[in-house]
C-alpha cells in the first residue's frame, strides 16, 4: 500500500490520478499508523514553503515524516522542505537532508520557471530505464543547492538539484505526475524500490 500524505497540497489530485493510471493501490492519509505502515510514501507539494511547514506542524506531520523508514518521495515543495532551510518565507524546514533552498535570480532568468527541462542524473534506481537527459515538467521559483544527496541536476540560470536521495528519502523538484511517459517510468521505479 502507498500512502499519500494528506495536508492539502495543490497537486494531491494529480498524484492520485497518476497512481490510478498505474493501477497502484494508495490511501490519502494524515494518520501516523497508515503512513508508517505504508510500503511507499508520497509527499506531494505545491505552494509556499512556509505555509507548507506550518500546516505540517499543525497536523504533527513534521515529526511523522522524519520517522518514516520506508521509501518516501517528496515532490516539488515536498522535496524542498526535506532540506534544512528555505529562503521562501525564511523557513526552517524538516532538516532530513543537508542543504538550503534558494530563490532563482529574476535578473538572470524568468521566474517562476514553468515548463519542461532536461535532467542529468547519476546512476540511481529512480531513473532506471529512462533515456539520457530526460525531460520533466517543473514549476518553481526556488531551488535546492547541489549537495551530497543530489542525484540529478538541471540548469536554469544556474545548475540546481532536480532530484535527491538520502537513505530512504527521495525527492524530485519536477512533477513526475505531470511529466508524461518519463514521469510514469519514474513513479513506477519509485514504487518498485
Amino acid at each position: 500500500m502507498i500512502a499519500i500524505i494528506k495536508y492539502g497540497a495543490g497537486n494531491t489530485k494529480s498524484v492520485m490520478n497518476a497512481l490510478k493510471r498505474l493501477n497502484a493501490d494508495f490511501v490519502l492519509t494524515d494518520l501516523e499508523s497508515e503512513i508508517m505502515q505504508a510500503d511507499k510514501v508520497i509527499f506531494p507539494g505545491v505552494g509556499h514553503a512556509n505555509h507548507t511547514m506550518s500546516v505540517l506542524k499543525e497536523k504533527g506531520l513534521d515529526t511523522i515524516i522524519r520517522k518514516v523508514k520506508n521509501p518516501l518521495l517528496g515532490i516539488c515543495v515536498g522535496m524542498q522542505v526535506l532540506f534544512e532551510y528555505s529562503e521562501e518565507g525564511e523557513t526552517a524546514c524538516l532538516g532530513i537532508i543537508e542543504g538550503k533552498v534558494r530563490k532563482f535570480d529574476s535578473d538572470q532568468v524568468i521566474v517562476p520557471q514553468i515548463g519542461w527541462n532536461t535532467t542529468q542524473y547519476k546512476e540511481n534506481s529512480l531513473f532506471k530505464g529512462l533515456d539520457e537527459n530526460p525531460w520533466f515538467y517543473s514549476v518553481h521559483s526556488y531551488y535546492a543547492e547541489i549537495g551530497d544527496s543530489t542525484i540529478a541536476t538541471s540548469s536554469y540560470g544556474e545548475v540546481y538539484t532536480s532530484a535527491v536521495q538520502h537513505s530512504n528519502f527521495y525527492g524530485t523538484q519536477f512533477h513526475p505526475e505531470k511529466s508524461s511517459s518519463n514521469g510514469k517510468i519514474l513513479i513506477n521505479n519509485f514504487l518498485e524500490l
Partner: peptide
C-alpha cells in the same frame, strides 16, 4: 481531464 491527461 485530470484523470486522463499526464501533462499540465
Amino acid at each position: 481531464i485530470g484523470r486522463e491527461l499526464d501533462i499540465p
